[in-house]
Design a protein around this nucleic acid. Structure first.
Lengths: 150, 150
DNA sequence: GGGTAAAAGTGGTTTTTAGTGGGTTTAAGT
DNA sequence: ACTTAAACCCACTAAAAACCACTTTTACCC
């Protein structure tokens, strides 16, 4: 089972191609032979999610099966299913980001790739840093988090 | 179980390499064979955490398992998992700090390494001293702390 | 207390590998 | 059939990893 960690600053070239860092490339090769699914993030942050294909096949049915009379559920479904795109790494270890996803997450040249355990997140550098600055807001947290001792 | 104590002033060279003090190096060698995980601190102080790998394997699942519909949980996950990087000491007992972590904690030449029991903290000297000056904030604390007799 | 030896810290050089940028062909859509 | 974009291929550049040599400090012994 894949375990993505760590952050990488990476550049998208003029064609919308993105070189996956070699460390991550190795993990992807072994988790899914380079076959991934790229989709939109469901919460308000406007980044992309990168799932190894086998992991995507676990979460897709879960999202489809949700009772969707609720607005938030419909939003989740429309975003996560509606933007999902299967991709493969090219021989040079790069992926081509589809234009709709590029604009959904406002991706320009400078990007950040963030490991989140079973998936990766892809941010524009600008939104990543502005999120870092502003997100230390309220202090309500679930009891599981209050109890942590790190 | 490792027990890091004490503080060291250390220098990072132009390549971002950091010589671990020999005292600490010995502790790391026996705790984890020199295999560590370096990551971002979760609260607003912008220092780095240094975990011996076995200790990291205890806390990573705890963080991943948190219910993440809450903003603060997502922040914790994105920072602590998202910046986590496994590293090994080179033959000269140095580690290379990845650029994203260097900039997260504003590390320049002069650094402070602070023992915190099961982990170490790595600060830029400047932020360490400014934190020392300004950090005596409010007086709300959890009951466990109120009950202490030191 | 001074000298010596060993270890620790520092810096630079070389080699390899990863990242970048085009250019060309093929396919797809208009 | 023409235009545009995506896939493929190859060459070049830059950065990271490994290697090695030197300086400084510390500890130990004379």
């Amino acid at each position: 089972m894949s375990n993505f960690l760590g952050s990488h600053a990476i550049n998208m070239d003029a064609k919308g191609r993105l070189a996956i860092p070699s460390r991550v490339r190795e993990q992807l090769a072994q988790a899914c032979g380079g076959r991934i699914v790229l989709t939109a993030n469901a919460d308000e942050e406007r980044c992309l999610w990168v799932y190894p294909e086998p992991q995507w096949e676990v979460i897709q049915p879960q999202i489809e099966a949700l009772p969707n009379m609720n607005r938030n559920v419909r939003r989740l479904q429309r975003l996560v299913l509606g933007y999902a795109t299967p991709l493969e790494l090219d021989p040079a270890g790069r992926i081509l980001i589809p234009p709709t996803l590029r604009s959904y997450a406002s991706l320009d040249k400078k990007l950040m790739l963030i490991g989140q355990g079973k998936k990766l997140e892809l941010w524009s550098e600008e939104s990543w840093f502005s999120w870092l600055d502003e997100s230390s807001g309220s202090d309500d947290m679930p009891p599981e988090m209050e109890a942590l001792s790190l």
